[in-house]
Design a protein around this nucleic acid. Sequence first.
DNA 1: TTGACATGCAAGTCGCGGCTTGCCTATTGT
DNA 2: ACAATAGGCAAGCCGCGACTTGCATGTCAA
Lengths: 100, 100
Amino acid sequence: MFKALADGTRRTILDELTEQNGQTLFEICARLATKHGLASSRQAISQHLDALEAAGLVRASREGRYKFHHIDTAPLEPIVERWLRKGREHEDQPAQHDGR
Amino acid sequence: MFKALADGTRRTILDELTEQNGQTLFEICARLATKHGLASSRQAISQHLDALEAAGLVRASREGRYKFHHIDTAPLEPIVERWLRKGREHEDQPAQHDGR
DNA sequence: TTGACATGCAAGTCGCGGCTTGCCTATTGT
DNA sequence: ACAATAGGCAAGCCGCGACTTGCATGTCAA
């Protein structure tokens, strides 16, 4: 899941899907090339989408020969609260550096 | 920054720092070994801390021969809003699959 | 001062991830 | 039916990242 976000191209794909949800593979390829200047091959993008889908960040729905990709930000929320919320509770207690 | 979060050990380090901020390298090593069952070498953890520091997620303060590591969640906030906030604005507009 | 402690630096190994290449399947339009 | 379109599968190349190994530096206590 974090590994899915580690790649810049995949993050751009998520950007593209937030702007226009439910795009097909070829649509994404075209918009990445034109708007973002990325010259990635179709297979590369396809594998990126596989990774995003495996991470639960993208859900795909098949209709005919088209496959529409929808972003799903649900997996994102609990994970950031993991450090953001808890960080506020107890501020910066100095550690005991008594050896060990 | 996302690459820094891509590694599970580094995420555990952040967990450890949210529980107890300002730990030294050896403290982190010990607590990773005992509480989380990770058998990582000192150098490995050190390099992980370097990565987290380069990503701006950890700030270090030197005192004597100790180096205390403090978590900094600031870089996290804008990045998730990137997809979470904007995702609410325009819900799931079907794409025009008119070719291209 | 000397030794133990806490950390830093650098080169090298090794596996995994991203990309390509080549071919295959399925759906649609004419 | 046939060609064009949209997508899938699998093997291989290659660079980067995680980890190790070995040694060097700096700091404190006795």
